[in-house]
Nucleic acid binder design. Structure first.
Length: 419
RNA sequence: GCGGGCGUCGCCAAGUGGUUAAGGCAGCGGCUUGUGGCGCCGCUAUUCGGGGGUUCGAAUCCCCUCGCUCGCCCCA
């Protein structure tokens, strides 16, 4: 039989890795609580239409990256490729919009059928924030600062924040017309990828990594010059407030995000330590989405952090930490093994971390394992001790030169230490 | 979807056409029927991702395929 293995682009998280994952999840949880942001959990599976309508039919995500299938009732289903559409759907469906503005966060797996590479998997995880019902530039700054501080708190260094204004729909429409006209004049000088994009999604050409196209674009019409007065003022406000908070940023006029629903402020937090997929956090304003998905006209802003990319950054700085029990129960002999089950449980009732050796191996073997487990104490139990309801407590941290401290005591006396 | 690199034990690896595929780590057993950190001894790949071919002979050469990886694309 062929070896069974995970599907392409999917990964197992092993015990040595889940420690870091839990650490990040706990920090995020605490961080959101401090900022008055509540968690929302939505299903991984949604109607395909939610994403085709929400994200945009023309985007690559919808066009060629979704995991879609017909279920047994012939419904067209899709494993969510991102979180925002689901959250908005849920907010509308459950009438949260009529309960005032919502500050929400979520975390969990997303699915995109892409070729895997560094920082890109088919199942990946995002932690995301959505402010729904908030239209002020201050809400953008608040959203950005929550992301920035979370990453800082986690100890990520070498981050760059880039922001840009995409303006309102009108601004963008006018700009698009002008840009396309200019690009068509310069069609021959574009690389072939950009030539195809010209029809599909011309704004994305601004993001091109092709050096000659990049050079060419320095002369292209600038989105900034097409922003309305209101759009400009709003963006200026964002810049001012970020500056007051001492959050360093850079305005990148070429920053255009790939999902159709973005408007006004868009931003990305990147790290040069990540390779080609350098965005750790990306987001922006999406004022039209709630209405587009059937809700009342509602402004909103959100972002998402890529967990795997964050992990890549963290495992560079942080020493690996493994779970270690406080007590390791060494036990051998019929009565001892039975008694040890009880000792383990009693210690855990007193909130102690206990690993019970289940091997029946020689004492020396078990002690060797106790030592490697990183436990502070070995608790030795043989039949002699079991008969007397006693244990031997041995300090595993004493240095090898000195004789190890060892103490024989009744189980109840050991337990008294914790009450 | 398109390019480049790679694929020998759970992990790290030597081997690049010729009798039994090094070694290290981890694991297991023992030296030590009840006392760790060190040491020593032993065991652990009929097989080199899978399939086909060339050859007297292949882990080593060729073809196909699968997977990993890096980049393009795309995005978190």
């Amino acid at each position: 039989m062929e070896k069974l293995q995970v599907l392409r682009g999917m990964v197992d998280l092993l015990p040595s890795e889940t420690i870091l994952w839990q650490h990040i999840e706990e920090s995020a949880n605490r961080h959101f609580k401090k900022a008055g942001v509540s968690e929302i959990r939505t299903p991984l599976l949604e109607a395909t239409e939610l994403f085709s309508r929400g994200i945009g039919e023309a985007t690559d995500v919808v066009g060629k990256e979704m995991y879609s299938f017909l279920d047994r009732g012939n419904r067209n289903c899709t494993l969510r490729p991102e979180g925002t559409a689901s959250v908005v759907r849920s907010v509308i469906q459950n009438g949260l919009t009529s309960q005032g503005p919502q500050k929400l966060w979520y975390s969990g797996p997303m699915f995109r059928y892409e070729r895997p590479q560094a920082g890109r998997q088919r199942q990946f995880h995002q932690i995301g924030l959505e402010f729904i019902g908030f239209g002020s530039p201050r809400s953008e700054v608040e959203a950005i600062s929550i992301a920035w501080d979370l990453l800082k708190e986690l100890g990520v260094t070498g981050l760059n924040l880039e922001i840009n204004s995409l303006g309102n729909d009108e601004d963008r429409k006018t700009y698009r017309k002008n840009l396309v006209a200019w690009l068509e004049e310069n069609f021959k000088s574009l690389d072939s990828d950009s030539q195809t994009r010209l029809k599909k999604n011309p704004l994305r050409i601004l993001d091109s990594k092709n050096p000659s196209t990049k050079a060419l674009l320095t002369n292209a019409p600038n989105l900034k010059d097409f922003l309305s007065k209101e759009s400009k003022e709003r963006f200026q406000k964002v810049e001012d407030e970020l500056t007051k908070l001492s959050i360093p940023f850079e305005v990148n006029p070429m920053l255009v995000r790939g999902l159709d629903y973005y408007s006004h402020t868009a931003f990305e937090i990147t790290s040069s330590d990540l390779g080609a997929q350098s965005t750790v956090c990306g987001g922006g304003r999406y004022d039209g989405l709630v209405e587009q998905l059937g809700g009342p006209s509602t402004p909103a802003i959100g972002w998402a952090i890529g967990m795997e990319r964050l992990i890549l950054l963290l495992s560079r700085n942080e020493p690996e930490t493994y779970y270690s029990p406080t007590y390791y129960l060494v036990n051998r002999g019929e009565q001892a093994e039975s008694f040890a089950l009880k000792v383990a449980r009693d210690l855990r009732y007193h909130n102690q971390n206990v690993e019970l050796d289940l091997s029946s191996a020689a004492f020396s073997k078990q002690l060797k394992r106790a030592d490697r487990s990183g436990a502070k104490w070995a608790v030795l139990i043989g039949d002699t001790e079991a008969k007397e309801h006693e244990v031997i407590l041995k300090d595993l941290r004493s240095k090898k030169e000195e004789r190890s401290k060892e103490e024989r005591l009744k189980l109840k006396d050991l337990l008294k230490r914790f009450s």
